[in-house]
Simulated scan of single mutants.
Amino acid sequence: MSAHIDHLVTSGSFSLDGGTWAVDNNVWIIGDDAECVVIDPAHDTDAILAAIGDRRLVGILCTHAHDDHIGAAMQVQAARNAPTHLHPDDMVLWDRVYPDAPPSRPLDDGQLIAIGGIDLQVLHTPGHSPGAVCFYAPALGTLFSGDTLFAGGPGATGRSFSDFPTIIESISTKLLTLPPETIVLTGHGERTTIGAEAAQLPDWIARGH
């Protein structure tokens, strides 16, 4: 198997509900030496294109449409003529950033995206946003969780279009059912595992959001 994961961190801002915060985002590139996809093209178009290199960019995959995660999507799409994929339930957020440029293709729960000899399975995990998704790569033993699951707990649900009970349901039914050794590569911060986060579920529920 030649598929592998490349990682870069880009820096910029996140704005919603009248506030703006400085953020560092994880950008994940999955593929082989010939082709790849990029998950969550954040902030820095030039850095993302450099990381892709001369590989064919098959698609731009968005875990959700908060502006920090899609800030470079249209620029990367234009530079490499690659389609952008987003779950339709997040159009309410996408349209705030790109009102005149819809994403190319919808993402559907259970959909498989082939890249570099492996499949990425789309898991619809609403809660952080209505159309939030994760991408599961069984062959790599890895989940790309966006802002649905972090090292230490679920993604934030204190802003518009988010809901704490919904994200707990998504994590419980879609993510914690994966093998406990599954590596979780997040939208911000450090990696974790499904097993590590499953052990904390009662504490998350007790604390609430």
Rank of each mutant, 00 (worst) to 15 (best):
H4M: 13
I5K: 09
H7Y: 11
V9K: 13
F14G: 04
G18N: 12
D24M: 04
N25I: 02
N26W: 08
V27A: 01
G31D: 10
A34M: 06
A34L: 10
C36A: 06
C36G: 06
D40S: 15
A42L: 03
H43A: 04
D44H: 13
T45K: 03
I48V: 08
L49V: 11
A51K: 12
I52P: 05
A65K: 05
A72T: 13
R80S: 09
P83A: 13
P83L: 01
V97T: 14
A101G: 04
P103E: 12
S104I: 09
R105Y: 14
L107I: 05
G110M: 13
G110P: 10
A114P: 07
I115C: 09
L120H: 04
G127E: 00
H128I: 08
S129A: 06
G131C: 08
A132F: 11
Y136H: 08
T142Q: 05
L143N: 03
S145P: 11
S145V: 08
T148N: 03
F150I: 00
G152R: 01
G158T: 07
R159C: 11
F164L: 09
P165Q: 15
T166K: 03
I167G: 08
I171F: 05
S172A: 09
K174W: 07
T177I: 14
P180V: 07
P180S: 00
I183Q: 02
L185P: 03
G187E: 06
H188N: 01
T192A: 11
I194W: 04
A196V: 13
A196W: 10
Q200R: 15
Q200D: 14
L201R: 14
I205D: 07
A206N: 03
R207K: 11
G208N: 10
H209Q: 10
